[in-house]
Amino acid sequence: MSRRTTPAAEVVKYGIVLAVLVFAFYPLLVTVIISFKTNAQYESNPFFFDALDTWQWHNWAEAWAIVKPYITNSIFVSVTASACTLVMVTLASYVFARYRFPLKNVFYYLIIASMFLPGTAATLVTVFWLIRNLGLVNNLWALVIMGAAGGQVAGIFILRQFIEEIPKELFESAQIDGAGHLRQVWTVVVPLSLPILATLTILDFLGTWNQVMLPLVVLKDESKLTIPVGLLRLEGEYVKQWGQMMAGYAIASIPLLVLFVFTMRWFVRGVTAGAIKG
């Protein structure tokens, strides 16, 4: 977009945006600053870095030792859940988009309707009880299953519309070549909807990664905690090592930041696309 603007107007716009960004990033900056301090250093100068030779690098080493298992668990849960979601979403969307069969609309609207039935804290109660009865308490698979089941709804809603736009001829020619359902999905749906699949998967991943309440009630062992719950436990310790704690927060933020750097385009597009559709 190229419109007439004046330098003064540009200054105002950049001023607003940058001022908000400064405040929005300030907590992150503070986290990094404190992560290099001992408690005494933090007390005397909380706002900025001390001289470089007094930086407490060992805070990061200690925090890494604590946070590492949490990160491993979180990666396991989020990757597995997103993969399951991806498979289920693709198959279900393909079936809903391409075929007519008895009870199709009933099933479809039951799935979509669950988007509008908000889960409250009470659902946490019954979900917890269900997981207990399945013998999955203190088991990461409980989180995988719940993440995969919950994550697929929005995905089916979006991907079905997308597959309906794919020209029928592509599927028909695949069929003539003798391709079954799975082969059609693999050769037609997946290549053509790769961008939207990437977006859906990333958003799904983010959602599972940030789950707090379910892991909090389901997981018991220290070694099985995911990042949010692990950080919560770290924070609750009686004698606080501020530097170590903040280093832990910083390390916990890194995996998603790395993912973000590589998938920036899908991120921005995904959020944007969801907004326009709605």
Binding site: L91, V95, S114, G119, T126, L130, A149
Partner: peptide, 24 residues
């Protein structure tokens, strides 16, 4: 064949989506 492809979705929705809500 179609129902088989839908099965994971339907089953997981019924057990982990609707059952807890009805149970409430």
């Amino acid at each position: 064949g179609l129902y088989l492809l839908l099965l994971p979705t339907l089953l997981s929705m019924a057990v982990f989506g609707y059952y807890p809500k009805v149970d409430v």
